Amino acid sequence: AVQVGALAKHYDVYIPDLLYFGGSTSPSTDRSPGFQAECLAAALGKLGVDECTVVGFSYGGMVAFKMAESRPDLVRSLVVSGSVVAMTDSISDATLERIGVRSSAELLLPESVKGLKALLSIAAHRRLWFPERLHRDFLEVMFTNRKERAELLEGLVVSNKDATVPVLPQKILLLWGHNDNIFNIELAKTMKEQLGEKTMLQSIDKAGHLVHLERPCVYNQHLMEFLAYATAEASKESAN
């Protein structure tokens, strides 16, 4: 909500619920980020959106990378936080071992208030306190479609031998919590080098995986600066 208020003053903002994260479902059995990206691009097309900047966090960042790869005509620039281009075997195994859980579902699909608190303690740099009632409400509202979401997590992981870093033409900002315990800053630095010279990395101190919630004002400042820069560069390119 903090990002929406800041952005809507200057931009047309579209906030999609990805499949199985809201009321949207599909008869398809495809649970890949690529399919999510395909559906999102189709929805934007129906709304008459010809070009856009995609901002993605965590799972949404993986979908954003897929959108940028498959639809460079639609995605003008890209902002990603706490995510990876592809969740390889090695990244998945190393992340789970570092956090100390057996599977992504165990961490990301909590079934109890205790599990939710454990997720928040890992995802945030500083302790986030909520009344017990809010924890229960959050569980009820945010963790629906458990079977399908577990399948989405399974559909994320690709083998190291099949993983490639795409050549993306877009200007990209990796906007990171410096203390991200899930996808750490070293992973972001490696990804920046792999993605090339059009990619910038900006880290935010005293913030973890939930950087946009922990340091919203700083996050918004960097986001707005990048959007202004990307818009100005696009105007220059179209003029030439």
Score class of each variant (00 low, 15 high):
E151Y: 06
S92L: 10
E97W: 10
V211E: 08
A37C: 07
L7C: 02
G177N: 12
N220M: 09
E225G: 01
L108M: 14
P72W: 09
D137R: 13
D205N: 09
A124H: 15
E151T: 05
L78R: 07
A234K: 14
Q221S: 13
S70W: 08
N145D: 12
A123N: 11
C52F: 11
L109N: 01
A8C: 08
P216N: 04
S159F: 12
P16F: 13
V49P: 01
S90C: 05
G22M: 11
Q194T: 02
C39D: 01
L44V: 06
V80K: 08
N145P: 00
V79T: 10
Q194Y: 05
K114L: 02
F143R: 01
M142N: 09
L139D: 04
A230Q: 04
F226S: 01
V113P: 00
R71Q: 14
A64E: 11
V165T: 15
V113I: 12
G115C: 03
T199Y: 05
K114D: 10
E97H: 14
V84K: 05
M200W: 02
V101A: 10
K206V: 10
Y11N: 08
I99Y: 11
S24A: 15
D89L: 04
G45M: 06
K192M: 08
A150C: 09
H178G: 00
R126K: 15
S238D: 06
A6C: 00
R215M: 13
V2T: 11
G45A: 07
E140Q: 13
I172W: 00
D180V: 13
V141W: 07
L40S: 07
F57L: 13
H178I: 00
